[in-house]
């Protein structure tokens, strides 16, 4: 396990989450929580992957963990979804989404072997978008259900 690489990646994810928080005009007091959530989510996923867990299950567990982190660090009756989503977006499959759309545009003009290759890439990218998104939704859902069950904190109804 390359712990330094995992940490560097997690810090990058935290910075990305903080930057997205600013771009989404989240109030200033939520930028640090967004950074921590992005960091914690990426760290937990990468650690699980390093320990041999699959990418999708690791993403699901990381998304659930991120909910607990957000609830722990935000001392307000409601946890704003903008923090959760800024934190969870670095776990997402944004590049696969772009690749899938670009492959979709390419397959209409290709022929022969190139068409076969592009079609396989398209299916792989679309499959990755689907499974990673599903893992994130599943993880967030489980995390939110636990939080509601244990502490009855509201999450979705804030900004």
């Amino acid at each position: 396990m390359d712990l330094v690489a995992v940490l560097v990646n997690s810090v990058l994810a935290g910075l990305l989450a903080g930057g997205l928080g600013i771009l989404l005009t989240a109030p200033l007091r939520y930028i640090a929580p967004a950074f921590v959530c992005g960091f914690a989510g990426c760290l937990s996923r990468d650690l699980l992957v390093s320990c041999g867990a699959s990418q999708n299950w690791s993403t699901a567990v990381a998304a659930a963990f991120l909910v607990f982190v957000a609830v722990a660090i935000i001392r307000e009756p409601t946890v704003p979804p903008v923090v959760l989503f800024s934190g969870v977006l670095p776990l997402g499959a944004a590049s696969s989404m772009f690749n899938a759309i670009m492959d979709l545009m390419r397959v209409s003009t290709l022929k022969g072997e190139a068409l076969n290759e592009a079609a396989v890439t398209l299916i792989a990218s679309a499959g990755r978008v689907f499974t990673v998104s599903l893992a994130i939704v599943l993880g967030l859902g489980v995390g939110l259900a636990f939080v509601r069950f244990l502490g009855r904190r509201k999450v979705w109804e804030g900004v």
């Binding site: 990058l12 990305l16 930057g19 997205l20 600013i22 771009l23 005009t25 109030p27 200033l28």
Partner: peptide, 19 residues
Amino acid sequence: VPYNRRVMLAAGACTAAVF
């Protein structure tokens, strides 16, 4: 908006650089 133009500009550029 809590952030002025310069902050939004820097956030956009830095987010892309980090990504």
